[in-house]
Amino acid sequence: MKWFKTATLGVALALLGGCASMESASDNGSQWMYPPMAVPLQASVQQEVQIARLSQLLLRTDLSDEIRAKMLYERGNYYDSVGLRDLARLDFNQSLSLNPAQPDIFNLLGVYYTQIAEFDAAYEAFDSTLELDPSNSYATRNRAIALYYGGRLELALEDMQAHFDEDPNDAFRALWLYIIKSEVEPEQARAELLARYEDRDEQWGWVLVALMLNEVSEEQAFKVIYSTSTDNMVLAEQLTEAYFYLAKRYQQEKKYADAISLYKLAMSFNVYEYVEHRYSFLELGRIYTQLRQEQVEAGE
């Protein structure tokens, strides 16, 4: 899922509705021999050309600060889309030095800081976004996620609840509200998400909700993905999302080996712009930290 859109696929829910009649892997003896995969995304010729073109134009000395700031922002977005995040962050900071009134840049920087667990810097960046653009609901969502990873669950829940209330039919908002609330009230969080799932619309994201709730088997979910993916890019995007949320479920169940493998799969498709790719790194670090703590406690 990118910062500003979610995919909708009417056919996905039709297929999901038919999953109940499908034979499960355990019933017919068939299982995935290998995890479902897509070809990892590579930088396109257009992206490379645009980066080169903007780099050449930025060498000019006759650019106004306004134009240079816009070009740095644009090149930063291209860097980000191909996974060159340090270069993107450098361009975004240079753009802000020329024009500080850019809420979208602060929002992206907040996500970067969340990824590397610099949570105070992330909160400050999201606060700057909302000061400049109070209606930016995605900054509210991203701040809620940063607060969640930073261990400030009450504030995280408050922000995510406000974000969810703006569009209760959004499956991704429901998913993240569940993820955060399950840390505080797991039974209530599950009951609420299940009720929303049963009253779902035709968004693709409800397939992920079904996977998170274990309402469909993994085989059934992957059948939906393969049936609705129109090309390799869509397949890579949907598998990135599916593996991330499936990993979250296994992590909640304390099946850490499975969760680690799935987070690595979520990163393997190079869908750099999706939050599921970005936060898989952070989740892996959290698991490793938790396992180390458990080993230390067991040794005492």
Rank of each mutant, 00 (worst) to 15 (best):
E198K: 12
L72G: 00
R190G: 06
L157C: 05
S261L: 09
Q115I: 12
D27A: 15
L153M: 14
E237A: 12
L87N: 09
N107V: 00
G299T: 15
V216N: 00
F106T: 00
A38Q: 03
F244H: 08
G151K: 07
S261D: 13
I145E: 01
F244E: 02
F244Y: 14
I179D: 02
R200H: 12
L208S: 04
W176T: 00
S217H: 03
I225M: 08
L16R: 01
G285K: 03
E241N: 09
M33G: 10
G83N: 01
G83S: 03
D258W: 12
L153D: 08
P35M: 10
M71S: 04
T114S: 11
I179A: 06
A257R: 13
Q42D: 08
V216C: 05
V209N: 01
R141E: 05
V111D: 01
K181C: 08
L87F: 10
A236P: 05
Y73E: 12
I67C: 06
L177T: 03
C19H: 09
N142E: 04
E202Q: 15
A247T: 04
L175V: 06
L13W: 05
T114E: 02
K255P: 04
I179M: 08
T8S: 10
L282M: 06
A69H: 04
A43T: 03
M37N: 14
N93F: 09
M233N: 12
S128K: 14
E185M: 12
L239E: 01
T230K: 12
V224E: 01
K70G: 07
D120L: 14
G299K: 15
R190A: 13
L57F: 06
V184Y: 06
L90H: 10
L211A: 09
A14E: 14
Q102N: 08
E183K: 14
A69P: 02
Q295N: 15
Y113F: 15
E241G: 01
L84Q: 14
N28V: 07
S95T: 03
M212R: 07
Q47D: 02
I260C: 06
L15F: 09
P35L: 10
V45W: 10
L194D: 09
L147G: 03
L72T: 01
D62N: 12
F281H: 13
E158F: 09
Q220R: 06
L284Q: 00
A14D: 15
A210I: 05
D258A: 14
L54Y: 06
L208Q: 03
E294Y: 10
Q290P: 01
E283D: 10
D86G: 07
A259T: 06
R286D: 09
S128M: 14
I51W: 00
P100L: 09
R292N: 12
W176D: 00
C19A: 15
E297W: 09
A122C: 05
S128P: 05
M33N: 11
Y243H: 07
Y138H: 13
S30D: 14
S135V: 13
K248I: 07
L109Y: 01
L109A: 06
L147H: 05
F106G: 00
F222H: 05
E187N: 14
L284G: 03
D258Y: 14
S268H: 06
L108I: 12
L194H: 10
L235K: 10
Y274I: 04
K223W: 07
